[in-house]
């Protein structure tokens, strides 16, 4: 690791002040992804601000009937929290589908949103990568790209966002509460991560001086019909080739509302509300599920090794919706 200086922030304002006045400063909480990337010289912060001593470590019901999850709550403490398990089991399942117990015991929810892509070329400092070194080129587009994106890609980057948690948050319409030097603001989860476009080095719409303080879940948690289906090369501790967070609200066998978010296919959790709307008022049948799946993958583009993910994603959507319908929650 390159040398850096370190300070502990006493509260949110101190952390935000400190990050604004230090060039090359980064916040650190769990650090599981940041330290990994620092060891291989992909990330090179000159100064680390430890935010683990500030508040925002609790999960509480908010005044809108939803839940406010402090940004510093660990992934495991969130997944195993009673309120989350009962009211938002989709989120619990998604979190537990990712990483290992050791990592989830340390990694925070705020950090989970900010984790970087696992694109092989982003990690390999011997190869060009527009995300790591803007303007150097993308090695993945014509390289080995089995794991990489099929939706929302650009000619500059086909990286995927690796989080499982964020996929469930996208399906649940979560919002991200942040504080910066200009004050607080709330970012809907779907606006939090960006598409790569011609600036793939910027992962999110969070500003340099902003710190995530909480994740807010609306009251509706779909505890009756949900599933997190994660398809991957081994059953545990592997990133998704394709994952689907699916949730249904039913009136008998008629669908009142459907939520579908995809992971492993794009630079951000992929939601397409206009495609979800196809299911509204329709019968919960495989045929209708397939129609939505086709709409979801409209415009998908393969890059050779990952062509199979287009059909895989369609079938995963159908299977996830069938599982949610029959309440087979396990992926």
């Amino acid at each position: 690791m390159r040398p850096f200086t370190y300070t502990k922030a006493a509260d949110v304002n101190a952390a935000v002040q400190e990050v604004s006045t230090h060039e090359g400063a980064k916040f650190i909480a769990g650090g599981t992804n940041l330290l990994d990337l620092m060891k291989i010289d992909v990330m090179r912060p000159a100064h680390l601000i430890d935010v683990t001593h500030i508040a925002h470590k609790t999960i509480e019901e908010n005044d809108k009937g939803g839940l406010r999850i402090g940004a510093l709550v660990t992934n495991n403490d969130t997944a195993y929290n009673e309120l989350v398990e009962k009211r938002y089991p989709l989120l619990s399942h998604a979190i537990l589908a990712g990483a290992t117990a050791q990592l989830r015991n340390v990694a925070t929810d705020g950090g989970n949103l900010l984790q970087r892509t696992r694109c092989y070329y982003f990690y390999d400092t011997a190869t060009p990568c527009n995300k790591r070194e803007p303007g150097s080129g993308c090695s993945a587009i014509k390289g080995y790209n089995r794991d990489l994106a099929i939706l929302g890609t650009s000619e500059h980057c086909i990286a995927t966002h690796p989080s499982d948690m964020a996929v469930a948050l996208a399906a649940l319409d979560a919002s991200i509460h942040v504080t910066g030097k200009d004050g607080e603001r709330t970012i809907p989860i779907l606006d939090f991560h960006r598409l790569p476009g011609d600036t793939p080095h910027i992962d999110t719409n969070l500003k340099e001086d902003e710190l995530i303080t909480s994740i807010d879940l609306p009251a509706k948690g779909f505890p009756e019909h949900y599933t997190y289906l994660k398809l991957r090369d081994r059953a545990s501790y592997a990133f998704a080739l394709v994952s689907v967070a699916a949730a249904l609200e039913l009136d008998g066998t008629t669908i009142k509302e459907a939520r579908i978010a995809l992971g492993g296919v794009a630079h951000k959790p992929w939601r397409k509300p206009e495609a979800e709307a196809i299911l509204q008022g329709k019968a919960a049948t495989t045929e209708n599920f397939r129609e939505v799946a086709e709409a979801y993958l409209e415009g998908a583009k393969g890059y050779g090794d990952n062509d199979f993910k287009i059909e895989l994603a369609k079938r995963a959507i159908v299977r996830a919706l069938e599982q949610a319908l029959k309440m087979e929650a396990a992926s």
């Binding site: 370190y6 330290l35 990994d36 430890d50 683990t52 990592l103 015991n105 340390v106």
Partner: peptide
Amino acid sequence: CDHGQCGACTVLVDGKRINSCLSLAVM
């Protein structure tokens, strides 16, 4: 591995298992 992939560095911190390789001692 020194990258949180193998678990050989697992220790208990306040009773919870963590990868000691992905944690700063100062923290």
